[in-house]
Amino acid sequence: MQQFANPAKFLKLANAILPYLWAATIILFAIGLYGALVITPPDYQQGEAVRIMYVHVPAAWLGLFVYCLMGFFSAVAFVYRHPLADAAAKTAAPLGAVFCFLALVTGSFWGKPMWGTWWAWGDARLTSMFILLLFYLGYMAIWTSIDEPTRAATIARIVALVGVVNVFVVKFSVNWWNTLHQPASVIRMGGSAIDKSMLWALLVMAVAYTLLFTALHLVSLRSEIAARKLRQQRIAEIGRR
């Protein structure tokens, strides 16, 4: 792991992997989407609307996963002070926020026919997902509002770590709040075990989403490294003048 912390080596590896990664992503998406939209049976309760699940659930998973990943990179950066880990955390944030947003939007598309409303505050997962999105936005706001990159990196690291610790507290309290205010009648889709005929498509979609995230993350990391190089060159040029 350590040796890939060198940006040059990392770039080499990333460039080598990326084409295969894209190919695998596209293939898996094709299989997953075909499975989700065509092969799998409609749900006996939810009808065709269940197909939203195949795009919604993986997005929500990734929203959480990317947040943990961001915390992990921040912890690594905090311990080893390595700029690449900072860059990784920084570039993961917007992607995670997009997945989070996607999960919320598709969730409310699903909620309209199922619950009858676009948005139900009674559902704890909706609320905590929304708060997670706010955490993402706050983290990104740090990077944009502090100009000096190393300073922004240090501060963003700490904010991410504090956020990771707190997100569990927030999640717990929202769950508790939700049991306090009993929701009227919410159909739980995870209530009964998902049938095998649907599960495989869901899992394929989850892997496809994860690969998509990895590919996008590598691309944005690459451009982040390029941007830093550019910045340094520009500064050096100004210095030479």
């Binding site: 706050g138 706001a141 740090i142």
Partner: peptide, 27 residues
């Protein structure tokens, strides 16, 4: 602390800290 060195930090503070206030508000 985050906004100590910033000129206009008010909005940033709200965005960062309000989500952390959620448990306090609930309980």
């Amino acid at each position: 602390a985050v906004t100590a060195g910033l000129r206009r930090g008010g909005l940033l503070v709200s965005l960062l800290i309000l989500p952390l206030y959620v448990p306090v508000l609930i309980f």
